[in-house]
Structure formats: C-alpha cells, structure tokens
C-alpha cells in the first residue's frame, strides 16, 4: 500500500516554475531517495510533503488521507533539516522530547523512556543534559535523527542530513541510517545531491532534473541502465560522446566525428545520431592495441587511482585507472571497453 502518494504536483514561485507535475508513490516502509543537482526542486518537493510549502497544483496523500491543505503539525511526519535545527535553548533530552510533548504522546514517564530509547539508538544517552552548542556537528546530527524518529512518524523526511559532515562521519552515519531504517521500518524520503549516498542507502532512487522526474528505479537499475544522457552523466558521471551508429563486421559500431569507431554489443538497436555513454571506471587504457585512440591531456593523482583526462574527437574524456598506470601528457593511448558496458542513448 502506498504510504505517500504525490499526484501531479506543480509548484511555482512567482513566475518561476520549480516543479512541473511530479507524481510519485512511496510504499510503506520504503526508503526513497530524491536525487538531483541543486535547484532541481528536490527540497521543494520534500517541503511540500512536510506541509512547509503549499502546492500550486496537485495533491498529497499520506496513508490514503488527502493532506494537501493541512499544516505541517496536522500531518504525522518528522523532518530532519540540513542544518539540524536543534532548539538552542533546550538541552538534548528536551529537544528529543519536544515532538512527544507537542503531539501529546504518552505521559511524562513514557516520554522519558522513549527519549532514552531514541538517544540509545543514536548512542548519545550520556549527552542528555548537554546543550546543542556543546556538541560536535556529528553529535548534533544524531540528536536531530533521534528527535525525528522518537515519535515514530508515518513518514520520515530527511533533507540532505549528511551533507555537513566530513567524509568519515558520513560513512558511519550512512550505515547507522540503514540500520535504523531496517529496525524501525519507517517510510523514509531522503533528499540528496550525492549519487553515492542515494545509491547506497535507498530501496529506490528518483532522479530529478529541472522539476521533472528524469528516471526512477532501484539503485542497480539507475546505475546500470541510465535512461537518458542526464541520468548517465549524473549517476557515475559517465562521459557522453556524440557519435553515429554504423554497421560493422561484428555488429553495430559507434563512429565518432573524427572517423574512429568503437565496437558495440551485437543487439544494440538504437540507430541514427546518438550519445555514447562511457563510465570512467569502465575504460581501460593501453599504449598499443586496436581500438579508438585518444590523447592524454592531464593526469590527476587520486591516491588509490589515477584519473586521466583525455581528448577523443575533440571531446574531453575522463578515465579512472590503477595508480601505477603511467602515461605522459600528449601521448596517444588506446581505449578499450567491454561492449556490454557501453550505453547508447538517442540524441
């Protein structure tokens, strides 16, 4: 059963249209990510679900009840903000108790127990009487999480909650979020611009672009079968090269503007002018051999890997290699890639 149902949501701020008719269903207990670049409308969509933003057109349902015109406090939701939005004049325990107090859930003792349990969930039970500003960013963030789950809302809304943490803490929190979601089974909508975060956390990823849904599917689907140029560029930051499809001895081939060709899988059906999407981690480089040649422009040392920026038919092309692969600038290298890993997208 759908827990959250958005039907043809439109939103305009003045003359600017931010959302162009978005329809989305989130099943009970599902973890859905809204993924997109900044300004794509993902946060606006989340705020519409929360009731912090009104819709220009369309409707919002939570558990079968239309809530489009209801204020946030009448919807059984919890939201975690990017800035955490902890109340600075209350201590940690009071912050976590706040939603229980305001919604009138349970007596004083029951509330205290729930607060304790929620703080234990995020391993902050020893910080109950601290003020938010006495805590580190990571700890504040966990308090915000405890506060969001303490009342067991019907829908948990997370607005880029991990973006203010350093890389190490972020990984820890990702694991924690997954575990908490598995344990509590809360319906969760998670907004992020970080594709890795979206792919690793969610049951389903909804890719938004310029106020429209570009593609939705499981993380594996989104990653391996991007439906559009935008999707393949955004997810895994693939290289997009313009090309034409021509017939070759061993099936269809992609012909670049400088005449070089790249072998495609035998059952590739798309014809005409296309974009060839090549993941930078799927490309391998060698000094000799058959295949399209590209020129090395720069090398970026990434520690565990090298990233080469190449030039193929005048287009920039990025490739990730092991860190012991060495080419010099200006050198001509041969590209090879498994034909099955090449995505052909109509242009």
């Amino acid at each position: 059963m759908a827990n959250v149902r958005l039907s043809a949501i439109k939103k305009s701020f003045g003359k600017t249209d931010v959302l162009h008719g978005i329809s989305l269903e989130v099943a009970s207990g599902e973890f859905v990510s809204l993924l997109g670049a900044s300004g794509c409308g993902k946060t606006t969509l989340l705020r519409i679900v929360a009731g912090l933003e009104s819709v220009t057109a369309g409707s919002v349902e939570i558990e079968g009840v239309e809530v489009t015109r209801l204020p946030p406090e009448k919807r059984d939701i919890a939201m975690m903000f990017q800035s955490y939005a902890l109340l600075p004049h209350l201590d940690v325990a009071e912050n976590v108790r706040f939603p229980l107090r305001m919604r009138g859930i349970g007596g004083r003792e029951e509330q205290a127990e729930k607060v304790k349990a929620a703080l234990e969930t995020v391993q902050l039970e020893h910080f109950a009487d601290r003020r938010p500003r006495q805590l580190s960013g990571g700890q504040q963030q966990r308090v915000a999480l405890a506060r969001a789950i303490v009342s067991r809302p019907k829908v948990l809304l997370l607005d880029e909650p991990l973006s203010n943490l350093d890389a190490r803490l972020r990984e820890d929190m990702q694991v924690e979020l997954i575990e908490i979601h598995q344990r509590l089974g809360l319906t969760t909508i998670f907004v992020t611009h970080d594709q890795e975060e979206a792919l690793s956390l969610s049951d389903r990823v909804v890719l938004l672009n310029a106020g429209k849904i570009e593609q939705e599917g499981t993380p594996a689907e989104i990653y391996s079968q991007p439906a559009t140029g935008f999707a393949s560029n955004f997810i895994g930051s693939a290289n997009l090269l313009p090309a034409d499809i021509v017939a070759g001895d061993a099936g269809p081939m992609a012909k670049f503007s400088d005449g070089q060709t790249l072998q495609l899988g035998p059952d590739e059906r798309v014809r005409g002018p296309v974009s060839i999407a090549l993941r930078q981690e799927d490309l391998s480089l060698s000094a000799t051999g058959d295949g399209p040649k590209a020129k090395v422009r720069t090398r970026v040392f990434l520690g565990a890997r090298n990233r080469y920026v190449l030039s193929l038919a005048g287009e920039p092309l990025r490739a990730l290699t092991a860190n012991d692969v060495e080419f010099s600038n200006g050198q001509s290298v041969t590209l090879s890639i498994d034909p099955q890993r090449v995505r052909v997208l109509p242009r």
Binding site: L52, P72, E73, I77, M79, M102
Partner: peptide, 9 residues
C-alpha cells in the same frame, strides 16, 4: 519550521 513539523501550531 522544525517546530511545526514536530506538532506545534
């Protein structure tokens, strides 16, 4: 806004 989502009018 956070207070509103936590049940405050």
């Amino acid at each position: 806004e956070a207070a509103r989502t936590m049940g405050c009018s």
